[in-house]
Amino acid sequence: MNCTTNYSPTATQATPAQFTTPAVNVVESKDQFVLEAEMPGVAKDGLEVSVEGRNLTLVGRRLTRSAEVSTLYREITARDFKRVFELDETIDTARITARIEQGLLRVTLPKVEAVKPRKISVVE
């Protein structure tokens, strides 16, 4: 997976400063990549995970706060989360799965069968 393309230039230009970039961890194993993105305040309903061509787009929309309260101090940005990743050819886009648990989005990106290392047993 090519992580150097974090943010597609077109997306940045179209919506300047509308989104915040979630921090991610990526772990690669022999048959898959697992991507974890921090999206606090995002529930399952606010999540949009899409693949278009070789681009994986993660969007997390925060729940809107009730207007009943008044704000005394604010650090948490109200912006929604967005990040675009360019997927490597080795990823089987049809089998990508995603789940969110306590504001942590976990995307599993399986590799295509052909690139998985295979052990060939030697017949005597």
Binding site: V24, N25, V27
Partner: peptide
């Protein structure tokens, strides 16, 4: 058998 490709968290 796995490796960290990116660690920002």
């Amino acid at each position: 058998d796995s490796a960290v490709a990116r660690r920002e968290r």
